[in-house]
């Protein structure tokens, strides 16, 4: 059998996500951001809604999401993506509007915008990549940094007595009547990738129902910020992040689980 026989379209099980551009990803090798981007674009492509989708990029490592996602995108100020998306969704009610945000962006500086967009039940999707750290600025403590976890601004480990406890934003917004679907996923194994994609798909499909916000947290790694190899980072995430941030649906079809 020739190589060309094997790479026939019908034999193809994996290819580059169509809605991703050809720009080289600027993320560190092993970083979950790239996979989260892929999944989001795959869902939009498969749903055939690319022409009607407007994305809002945050400030954080994924500030350049618009370099990689081949759709119309607006880059928001640090933490303000839910406000930006609110206005786009309100003035273009038939469009699919989503934000893509890190944990510093969504759960620290943008807490008010997150809570209030969720509380108003804006008809948008929020994709929240929680890596427990400020990746972009070089590994400072985030509101989601685990107790005892070291960062450049908590070099002796996060002391909850003086620095507070990590905030579970996803559980918090699930309490608000404006959220329709709230889930926590990860993208570090094949199995989790498949689950996360299903969740993202459900979130985008919910936009058609106009019943409120769909909020998808992706617990992710930051091997650079955590100062670990990609493999060690994933193992550390399973052992430490998942117990604090358990995976799974928290609210489905407007009902808490």
């Amino acid at each position: 059998m020739e190589v060309l026989d094997i790479i026939k379209p019908e034999n193809q099980v994996f290819c580059k996500t169509k809605l991703m551009t050809n720009a080289a990803l600027s993320y560190c090798p092993g970083c979950g951001h790239g996979t989260a981007h892929n999944l989001t674009m795959e869902v939009i492509d498969e749903m055939g809604i690319a022409e009607d989708t407007i994305g809002v990029a945050p400030v954080g490592c994924s500030v350049l999401a618009y370099d990689f996602m081949n759709i119309d995108m607006t880059q928001a100020a640090h933490g303000r993506a839910p406000a930006v998306a609110t206005a786009i969704a309100r003035t273009w009610p038939e469009k699919y509007v989503f934000t893509y945000q890190g944990d510093g962006d969504l759960a620290a500086i943008g807490t008010a915008e997150t809570i209030h967009a969720c509380n108003r039940g804006e008809n948008i999707v929020i994709i929240f990549v929680n890596n427990g750290i400020y990746g972009m600025t070089g590994g400072q403590m985030a509101p989601t940094t685990l107790p005892g976890m070291k960062s450049t601004t908590s070099p002796f480990g996060r002391d909850v007595k003086t620095m507070g406890s990590p905030i579970k934003m996803t559980e918090l917004v699930a309490q608000l009547p404006g959220t329709y679907y709230v889930t926590r996923q990860s993208v570090h194994t094949h199995k989790n990738v498949r689950k996360a994609k299903k969740a993202i798909k459900k979130a985008f499909e919910n936009i058609k129902l106009k019943k409120g916000i769909s909020f998808v947290e992706i617990v992710s790694n930051c091997n650079s910020g955590w100062k670990m190899t990609p493999n060690d980072a994933n193992k550390w995430m399973e052992d430490n992040m998942f117990p604090y941030y358990p995976l799974g649906d928290i609210k489905v079809n407007g009902k808490l689980k």
Binding site: I54, V56, T74, A76, A77, R80, A83, V84, A85, T86, A87, I88, R90, T91, W92, A112, E113, I115, H116
Partner: peptide, 22 residues
């Protein structure tokens, strides 16, 4: 015309940014 009372002036101006970007 859409009129919305935002949660703060910060949110309001970023909503303006969002709608203006479209």
């Amino acid at each position: 015309m859409v009129c919305l009372q935002a949660e703060s002036e910060i949110a309001a101006i970023n909503m303006v940014y969002g709608a203006a970007s479209t």
